[in-house]
Design a protein around this nucleic acid. Structure first.
Lengths: 364, 364
DNA sequence: GGTTAAAGTGTGCACGTACACACCTCAAAT
DNA sequence: ATTTGAGGTGTGTACGTGCACACTTTAACC
């Protein structure tokens, strides 16, 4: 019934004014007599007018410059995903005048991070997209952006309300629980479980701690008698000897170790170690579809990988900014991506998805 | 560098013709001198011109009428997913002049199916989207559509090449393999496994057979000695007594039964039966996030559900038609959706996704 | 050489919105 | 009484493409 799309022209006709005046009311610019403004606004509301985004984009030559602050994929290949996602969304959005400047920093170098963040801030972008992997260092920048009224979207690492527009990523706690479930399912007798944090200090990476807590809480509920024994170690590959020694010690002292949960995307390092030690009875659950991880997933050393959808995070993040700034839509403050369980058997579909997202999506 | 988007006007300028002539070359309509056509085509190719879809949609008042042939969600709630997906995509595509007429049939009544299919054909739509759940009955329609040059997209149930534009759904064989993996993972000693087909005759539902074959092949590889014993039954709820009797017989004769694989979305019926019989040690793997299934997933009777993404199937199917007809893009003949493993722990994200797809997607 | 039709080409408007500019009105200041 | 300026309002063009229409050229025929 409401077949006819209502246009500015129709509103103008109804309100007995020109399209220009309606335009002024819609965009809240220029001068309009209060009486007329009210009359027009009422008609707009009642007719639930929806602007034609295509015509709008066509007529407007406004440019939106976004800035993205991401770690160097050359240094940690995990970050290739978000980067690809960003570039994919740009491809789709450039028709609407959106461009994204990337600021790449070294994830192992705080100075590089702050430098690039400062550089980004200096470029006065219209919107910002970043992974705040250095918690303490990023806070002052949040303040600045807030003052300058530049919306920013976080991804991958969640930080509670600091004036951010929205967060995109996983619920770390819940992913830990899921890892627990996967270990526990089908396990007929209790065993020991090891949690491994690699290459990131838990003091500055709250999401790793959340993952561990999730796992422990799962067993807390599923195994109230505490028959499963859970221990934790922090490893650092910068000292290869220490890396092996620590793991060796665990293997020796924990003969009934059956499962290892690696909270970062570096599960493959643990897998390589286990193969070396011929400990094929121990299964690993880790994160992310890095080529190195997939190698061990196919061999069975890694049982499951939880996909954090890095590409989708990048894609949706930029989309989110565009939805807010370009399309003036309301955006959810929290966007939790699904916790995809990846095994050898369903792997290919998640890899394919990485490539095929482009053609299927569409405006809204 | 390649910053400037190239327009028809630019091409016309370069080729020393008017925009009208370029338009004729692009759309292959009207008369153009061969020499000029080649000259223009060359410039188009070299400049990798991409038409501005917004301007195109704005200027064209062409309407696209699609038709969807789907089972009645009132009768089998699984089909609510595709229906929602269809309506979601329409919401996004109506700006481009796309509308979809739905033809709803009774999935348990062949006559209803053929009737609606005939009705649909009579409406001469520009594109067709359907789930060909009655294999034999749909073939003659394929012929008709092929002759009338109406592209059709299949979903949910795959049928090999019959002139279809593309298929959207899961790789059934692979999903059976995945079910095998999930059963086998962590299972420390061999056991018996039961495959259950409910409410669909395997003779007319090739995808159910594929699932079973996938499961059997998994164990064939993972358990070459054949220590796991796999049996199959076909159930029909239209005869409740027979339903129970058959299951009871299996329980009696198979004391080491640990896993049941239900190949349709009806796992909840088996779960209800198991609870009645207090057979909590048997775990079920089934398909799809129906409310009834979720009930038992949360209680643990159902261990995993494989999500077939019904909503996404509907969404992408219509999108696919639009990509082909409206945006003149090439579309893949096969679009396998991911095999999502759903448990109690990651359930909410797949449910949320059902709602939140709308705002995130965009043209391309 | 003139008529005719077909082949080939150019022009101009429409789509719905944004925005610059021109204009009109009326009161206050000169 | 004229100027000034601000408050209001309308008009027209641009955005890139699709498409109808009008126009020009070419060749063929009597």
């Amino acid at each position: 019934m409401e077949n006819k799309t209502i246009r500015i022209k129709d509103i103008a006709l109804k309100a007995k004014v020109s399209t220009g005046t309606v335009d002024r009311v819609i965009h809240n610019r220029g001068k309009v007599a209060e009486k007329v403004r009210l009359r027009i606004q009422k008609i707009i509301d009642e007719s639930n007018y929806e602007p034609n985004l295509m015509a709008r984009a066509l007529g407007s030559k406004k440019q939106y410059r976004f800035a993205a602050l991401i770690p160097d994929p050359e240094i940690d290949s995990y970050w290739q995903g978000p980067k690809d996602g960003i570039e994919l969304s740009v491809k789709e959005l450039k028709q609407y005048g959106v461009s994204v400047e990337q600021f790449i920093f070294n994830p192992f170098d705080v100075k590089s991070f702050t430098e690039k963040a400062a550089e980004l801030t200096g470029s006065t972008p219209d919107g910002i997209f970043l992974s705040p992997i250095f918690y303490h260092e990023i806070l002052p920048f949040f303040e600045k952006w807030k003052k300058a009224d530049i919306p920013f979207v976080l991804f991958n690492t969640e930080i509670e309300d600091f004036g951010l527009l929205s967060y995109i990523g996983q619920d770390s706690y819940q992913s830990g629980k899921l890892a627990g479930k996967l270990m526990h399912y089908g396990q007929s007798e209790p065993c020991s479980v090891l949690v491994v944090h690699i290459d990131e200090k838990t003091s500055n990476a709250a999401h790793l701690v959340k993952k561990e807590t999730g796992l422990r809480d799962y067993f807390g509920q599923a195994d109230p008698q505490g028959q499963y024994h859970i221990s934790t170690i922090e490893l650092d590959r910068s000292d290869p000897d220490d890396f092996r020694n620590q793991l060796d010690r665990v293997l020796e002292t924990t003969p009934d170790l059956k499962h290892i949960f690696v909270t970062t995307s570096k599960a493959h390092h643990v897998a390589a170690f286990l193969e070396e030690r011929h400990a094929g009875h121990i299964k690993i659950i880790g994160y992310d579809l890095l080529a190195e991880n997939l190698h061990y997933l196919k061999k069975g050393t890694i049982g499951f990988l939880i996909n954090q959808n890095p590409k989708r995070q990048g894609y949706l993040g930029i989309k989110q900014l565009a939805n807010f700034l370009v399309f003036k839509k309301k955006v959810p403050r929290l966007k939790f991506l699904s916790l995809d369980i990846v095994t050898q058997e369903n792997l290919s579909y998640y890899l394919e998805e990485e490539q095929a997202t482009a053609t299927e999506e569409s405006v809204a």
